[in-house]
Design a protein around this nucleic acid. Structure first.
Lengths: 137, 137
DNA sequence: TGTACTGTAAGACTAAGTGTTACAGAATGA
DNA sequence: TCATTCTGTAACACTTAGTCTTACAGTACA
């Protein structure tokens, strides 16, 4: 699984705990343990899809743009990792019954699998994540 | 997604169409479009788990060892790709509430996701795959 | 005009996946 | 017994995707 997905969740969760002020990519990247540029790339994607807003310049940064309970993990999955389940099959032999039809069969199964995964991920909103973060182990 | 999974399915399907005789790794690799050694590595795993039997030497090869309808995709997933859904999070900052708890939260969510995926994959037996292969597009 | 940010491109580095060669061991048949 | 045809596996080269890092332009603010 793409780590963009988890970085996106991490970032949004971070912002969810700072709803009243802007957070810089440096602060988030420090929390997530990755390079600021990488975080900015992920944040840029989140912004493009309207989950967050950003402001350049001194005192700028990123801030949540939606309601916590209206953003779920499936939304985030779709923009960061859609198709990640799909296995990359090498081009198999068209002259063989198996080779010629396997890809078609697998693609349809994995599309179903992703859809199925979606149903599961939809149940987790960012609000749930925030609650889980606060709940002690 | 790991392509070992699809190669395993491909191999088993191939064998499922040749239930009465042995198939060589060369034949299967040609159908799947990958190197024989790679196929043998996957087949070796399938053998270790009792899905197939093999025989060395001239006239040898691989042959199915189970009933077609008692092997499902979840069985195969488990031995080839278990944990593939689990995203690799970099070690995040323990000093931050988010960083310190994110990994735990994500791991539990993804474990649930994999379990959920399992329920879906369990519905596909090798017999189903063989039927799908034969069904024209 | 200097400082503190975002936004992005480009290249270096790293790890995982895959292909390839090589060779030992087992079964078979001449 | 010996050549042949297969599995089984290790080792290494190659390729690709992922990630880190540097660099710098653009924007806001004081």
């Amino acid at each position: 699984m793409n780590s963009d997905f988890t970085l996106a969740i991490h970032s949004l969760t971070y912002l969810a705990l700072q709803l009243d002020r802007m957070s810089t990519s440096d602060a988030i990247s420090e929390s997530a343990g990755v390079h600021p540029v990488r975080i900015r790339k992920v944040l840029s994607l989140l912004k493009k899809h309207g989950f967050i807003k950003s402001k350049e310049g001194s005192g700028g940064g990123f801030i949540f743009a939606r309601d916590l309970s209206e953003v779920n993990l499936w939304d985030i999955y779709k923009i960061t990792s859609e198709g990640a389940l799909q296995p990359k099959c090498p081009d198999s032999n068209e002259a063989c019954v198996v080779g010629a039809n396997m890809q078609r069969v697998l693609v349809s199964i994995f599309l179903g699998a992703e859809e199925h995964l979606g149903e599961y991920l939809k149940h987790y909103t960012l609000k749930d994540i925030v609650d889980l973060i606060h709940k002690e182990k």
